[in-house]
């Protein structure tokens, strides 16, 4: 009895909706991965900007896309040697 009531009134999401949500996520990731030029370009442009502030080796920069729950996170690992002096007048 309990089970059938749950069946009638329960809000268990339809499996087709779950399929759609999962697909949307994985396909976004697939599409980004297909285009690795995107990551290379981002890597270069980010390094260019960061070089104004830090001293670091471009090759040591690690970048990756990660999925956390329902969203994507761009993780950049940048081992730096030191900050540039950002205020030369001091």
């Amino acid at each position: 009895m309990n089970i059938s009531i749950k069946r009638l009134f329960g809000r268990k999401p339809k499996s087709s909706n779950i399929a759609k949500q999962r697909l949307k996520l994985v396909i976004t990731q697939d599409r980004l991965d297909v285009d690795d030029r995107f990551m290379t370009r981002l890597h270069h442009e980010l390094a260019e900007v960061l070089a104004k502030y830090f001293e670091f080796s471009v090759n040591s920069v690690q970048m990756s896309l990660k999925q956390e729950g329902n969203s994507y996170v761009l993780v950049a690992d940048i081992p730096y040697k030191k900050f540039h002096d950002t205020n030369p007048r001091r």
């Binding site: 339809k14 499996s15 087709s16 399929a19 759609k20 697909l23 949307k24 396909i27």
Partner: peptide
């Protein structure tokens, strides 16, 4: 299967 919520319908597929 679409009616019972076990299969994606055409709008879902086209949206993806």
């Amino acid at each position: 299967l679409v009616g019972s919520g076990s299969m994606m319908d055409q709008d879902d597929v086209l949206d993806i």
